[in-house]
Simulated scan of single mutants.
Amino acid sequence: MPNLPPLAKTQTSNKNGFQCQSVTFQALDGYTLVGTLYTPTIHPIKANLLISSATGVPQAFYRRFSEYASQLGYQVLCFDYRGVDRSAPRQLKGFKMSYLDWGKLDLAGAIEYFFKADTALFLVGHSYGGQALGLTPNHDKVTAMFCFGTGAGWHGYMPLKEKIKVQVIWNIVFPPMVAIAGYLPWSKLKMGTDLPKGVYQQWRKWCKNPTYFFADPEQQVLHDLYAQVKTPIYAVAALDDDWALPNSRYAFMQHYKNAPMHFINISADEFGLQHIGHMGYFRKGSEQIWDKMLDTFESLIPHSS
Rank of each mutant, 00 (worst) to 15 (best):
D85C: 11
A88T: 04
V57G: 04
G94A: 07
S87H: 06
Q75H: 02
F65D: 07
F65L: 09
G103L: 10
F61M: 11
W102E: 03
T55H: 06
A54C: 14
Y81R: 00
C78S: 14
L92I: 02
L107W: 07
F115P: 00
R82A: 08
Q59G: 12
D85E: 14
F79R: 08
Y74G: 03
D106A: 07
V84Y: 07
N48C: 08
P40H: 09
Y81W: 12
Q59R: 15
S66C: 15
K96V: 15
R64Y: 15
R63G: 06
L77W: 06
Y74C: 04
L50T: 01
F95K: 03
G109R: 02
G73M: 05
P89H: 05
L50A: 05
S98C: 10
A60R: 13
G56P: 07
G109C: 03
V84R: 01
F115E: 03
T39F: 00
Q91H: 12
Q75P: 01
R63L: 11
G56I: 06
A69I: 02
A88K: 00
C78H: 14
D101C: 10
I42P: 00
R82T: 07
R64L: 15
Q91N: 15
G56K: 10
Y62F: 11
F79H: 06
A69T: 04
L100F: 15
D85I: 00
K104N: 11
L72C: 01
S87L: 05
R64N: 13
W102G: 01
G73T: 05
G103P: 11
Y74R: 05
F65T: 06
R64C: 09
I51F: 12
D101S: 14
F95E: 02
D85Y: 13
V84N: 12
P58Q: 12
Y38V: 10
T39N: 02
G103C: 11
Y113R: 04
L72Q: 15
F79M: 05
Y113D: 00
F114R: 13
E112K: 12
T55V: 14
G94T: 09
F114W: 11
Y74T: 02
H43R: 14
T41L: 04
A88V: 08
K46Q: 13
G103T: 10
L49V: 14
L100E: 14
E67H: 10
V76Y: 01
K46S: 09
P58M: 08
Y113G: 01
F79L: 09
A54Q: 07
P89R: 05
T41N: 05
Y99R: 05
A110L: 03
S53R: 12
I42Y: 10
S98E: 15
D101P: 06
S66F: 09
A47K: 03
S87R: 03
Y81V: 00
S98M: 09
G109Q: 01
N48I: 06
P58F: 10
V57C: 11
G103E: 12
A60D: 14
